[in-house]
Write a protein that binds this DNA or RNA. Structure first.
Lengths: 215, 215
DNA sequence: ATCCGCTGTGGGGAAATTCCCCATGCCCGC
DNA sequence: GCGGGCATGGGGAATTTCCCCACAGCGGAT
């Protein structure tokens, strides 16, 4: 069996070095290239057609999400493993759609990356953080058991949640509830923390998924 | 670390024996039970609360799909790996919803099962045949009939529209498109004018209604 | 009885974002 | 060649956000 060829794309040299040392023990893997940004990764993928690309998400020039899409165009056989930090979780769906084969967290044990490479090499997928089932559930609307998510919210928070998700500004929501905008802000801050969402649109989508507001 | 406890459910003794021999080399795994049908598997799971259940789909009494759902009720911590034949692919979606952690084909290399057990044991998932991305795509069909509203938008505006509606900040969208945040702001201002919406959530809902982004 | 934790109410203040205007270069149609 | 949409950005005031804090009421633990 010929060696598995690998391309590493990360804008931090130290990470590339780390990956190299992680994979050093694997003699049947050859690292054929390094890229410091997404654009380079795409270009090198076009030239080298590596079996696997290990890629970060946040990179200058072109981020990993877009690079993933382009690499799949220029080298469809190439499998892509996203190796990134927890905060990038929000791109997961897009990455799924773009067709990644694996997703590994940098803060996890280094062996995770090896495992992912091994899995992808033989045509499987490997996702360390993501429960594909959970992700699928999010996408299938009629799901029951939605209350689970909202019983963590207090009644007032739920109220604020609905208003904000529906498009009211903090100020408008405050007027509607006859309380200070600062109070609404506090509720907003807390509920977004509880629901683990970072943006208003995410809030909106969550509310829609759970039937709290209509599309 | 305590041993990982395992339950095997298959209506063919020979398969159980095969699995046992496959896993024999793993000293940190203990097979705590065997079930010959789904009902038994559920009952044993309730009693034994195994870490992992390896289960066939086609079984008498109760099939693997229903058994999966019940096991998740009686022993939520138990991870379930489906070990089955190719023809059972059609149950995949349902199994996903029920919350399986792995899916391995019997006709594949035996090592696949070991790999899946290893993966599941450390909290990951393992799917040998299924491309989660493809599955996700199936569930997010492109809806037609959107052009009407959006032909008023220029291509670039549409791009910005999708990103913003999906939850990216102006700055993030700018990074994604490799342009200045100010430019994105301009696009945002113009497209919101064109679409006659005043808030980001309205943008999000509009995008969802027209299938530009998924909920 | 007391203490803890949650909830609802608000404030402070720096930082970031928004909003609206403007400017430039470009290409395309007329 | 000239008007007009398009894509690209800047300026700057105004607003909002973000994340800390405070305090009062209240219900459940110990």
């Amino acid at each position: 069996m010929p060696k598995t060829t690998l391309l590493i794309a990360d804008d931090h040299q130290v990470v590339i070095a780390g990956i190299r040392s992680l994979l050093a023990s694997k003699t049947d893997i050859e690292i054929v290239g390094e890229a410091a940004n997404g654009a380079e990764a795409v270009e090198l993928s076009r030239e080298l057609k590596p079996d696997i690309v290990i890629m970060d998400i946040s990179m200058p020039e072109m981020d990993g999400v877009e690079a993933t899409g382009r690499i799949r165009e220029v080298s469809p056989e190439t499998k892509i493993i996203i190796y990134t930090m927890h905060s990038d979780q929000r791109f997961i769906l897009e990455l799924f759609k773009a067709g990644i084969s694996g997703h590994v967290l940098k803060e996890g044990p280094p062996a995770d990356l090896c495992a992912a490479v091994d899995a992808v090499r033989v045509g499987k997928t490997c996702f360390t953080t993501i429960d594909p089932a959970a992700l699928l559930l999010k996408l299938t609307p009629e799901r029951p058991g939605r209350e689970a998510l909202f019983e963590q919210l207090s009644p007032r928070e739920l109220e604020v949640f609905k208003l904000l998700a529906d498009g009211l500004s903090v100020k408008e929501a405050a007027a509607r509830l006859h309380i200070s905008p600062k109070t609404v802000e506090t509720h907003k801050y807390n509920l977004m923390e509880k629901l683990d969402v970072g943006t208003i649109p995410d809030l909106t989508k969550l509310a829609i998924r759970h039937g709290l507001i209509s599309v």
